[in-house]
Design a protein around this nucleic acid. Structure first.
Lengths: 103, 103
DNA sequence: ACATCATTTAGATGATTAGCTAAGTATCTA
DNA sequence: TAGATACTTAGCTAATCATCTAAATGATGT
């Protein structure tokens, strides 16, 4: 739980998660959106991976990062519950999810 | 936003908020629940105040701390929205809210 | 005024953090 | 095998963090 909030406490990392919401992206593609060095980005990815908010997958030369939505959801839910708040998945009517994963 | 998540990234501070959920408590009363020195607790209070998650009120010799529920709510809402999540106030049927604030 | 109680400020320390450059590891392609 | 491409690891620095003890502030009570 602390790890998740720690991860979320950095704007760059929050933005990374936001970008991944639309679908998986490579480390390089993600890095293009920020004005910091690749190694710095790599460190941010590591923090997010530690918190289990993202997962990585080797794809040829690249590394694809996926958002772990369920972890984000559950962390927020678990925390919110204590304060009498409900976290639920917003129903986006007609939202087509372009998700490359199998099935 | 970063300030809120940073504040939430420490378990002691999360627990302080949780304790304040039941109603205002003095610095000393709060400190009793933890195994750290008073000055350390005072520093934690400062972080929470910076994030506007709590407010302080002088009451005689003591300082009363109040939870700023609306700020917590709005921060969580604002963040969750980006990820297609809804945060709402849990309806606690029959919950008498002992809260002096007007409407 | 003085002592006491409640809390914060000052000042120090060791650990962690975000950032960098330079070097290392994999993978592809010629 | 050599070169290029995509990332990560190593190693550094400056800043922030959580913690402590000791001292300062502020309010109450005698």
């Amino acid at each position: 739980m602390s790890r998740v909030f720690k991860a979320l406490s950095d704007p760059t990392r929050r933005r990374v998660l936001e970008l991944l919401r639309e679908g998986p992206l490579s480390a390089g593609e993600l890095a293009e959106h920020f004005n910091v060095s690749k190694p710095t980005m790599s460190a941010h990815f590591a923090v997010l991976r530690e918190a289990d908010l993202i997962t990585s997958e080797k794809r040829g030369k690249s590394v694809l990062y996926h958002l772990n939505m369920s972890v984000l959801e559950e962390a927020l839910m678990g925390f919110a519950e204590v304060f009498g708040l409900d976290v639920s998945v917003k129903t986006r009517i007609g939202a087509a999810h372009r998700d490359g994963a199998s099935s």
